[in-house]
């Protein structure tokens, strides 16, 4: 872990408003991050084809190809964490963005310091858990070190956040984890993280690991309490 902090994390900002893009890029650079800028969705996707980034900062309100579409296209080829930038925390944009594949979100007006803390939290935890041992849940096998999941021997493509979520639940199988606990362990939030993050990610995870996502047996909901992987 020690060496990770020495390598500047790379961030791609996809934002059409030049003023915000410039100032956020400058502020993040002053926080020690390696920042690239893209002024449109198309330009952003082009950049992503050229090189890897550790985190993508994506504005949802883009002219042309909008943020949701950009997010879906990124997800087709990559598991790079996406933080979306939205104007309203309480709008349906948040849920729509999360469903399109975003890992987290920030609302305007945000402060670059907080944003860089979120970026670091996402990057840090996406580098594996350091566990060597494999975990099996029914016909699902998790290899924490490699960051891979197989179901009935077939590989399941999970984003890093989905993978982390599944691992946290599997490590404590039989126990109910509240949304607050999951927000803290998976996203690095304190008590007041948005529990929709958990709900949407559980939904996404179920689509990939459950035989019947509308009748889940791997990740079950415990009403009023949280989620659990039955022992």
């Amino acid at each position: 872990m020690g060496t990770l902090l020495d390598v500047p994390q790379s961030v791609l900002i996809i934002e059409d408003d030049v003023r915000i893009r410039r100032i956020v890029a400058m502020a993040l650079r002053s926080e020690g991050l390696d920042v690239q800028e893209a002024g449109s969705g198309e330009e952003g996707l082009e950049r992503l084809g050229e090189r890897r980034f550790d985190v993508i900062l994506l504005d949802l309100m883009l002219p042309g190809v909008d943020g949701f579409e950009v997010c879906r296209r990124i997800r087709r080829t990559s598991d790079t964490p996406v933080i979306m930038v939205t104007a309203r925390a309480d709008s349906h944009d948040v849920v729509a963005g999360l469903e399109a594949g975003a890992d987290d979100y920030v609302t305007k007006p945000f402060v670059a310091k907080e944003l860089s803390a979120r970026i670091r939290a996402l990057v840090r935890r996406s580098r594996g858990t350091g566990l060597r041992q494999r975990i099996t849940v029914g016909d699902i096998e998790i290899a924490p070190e490699e960051g891979t999941v197989t179901r009935g021997g077939e590989a399941v493509e999970l984003t890093r956040t989905e993978f982390k979520l599944l691992t946290e639940l599997a490590l404590e199988s039989g126990r109910v984890l509240s949304r607050e606990e999951l927000l803290e362990r998976v996203w690095g939030y304190d008590y007041f993280g948005d529990s929709r993050l958990v709900d949407v990610h559980v939904r996404r995870l179920r689509k990939k690991v459950e035989a019947d996502p509308s009748n889940p047996t791997v990740v079950t909901t415990v009403r009023g309490m949280g989620y659990r992987i039955p022992a």
Binding site: D17, R19, I20, I23, V24, M26, A27, S30, A87, R88, K108, P109, F110, V111, A112, K113
Partner: peptide
């Protein structure tokens, strides 16, 4: 107030940057 949030983001971060 929604329209004000975008310029505010710029202002807040610019001020923070200058503070550095």
């Amino acid at each position: 107030s929604h329209e004000l949030r975008t310029p505010l983001t710029t202002m807040v971060n610019a001020a923070a940057l200058v503070d550095g």
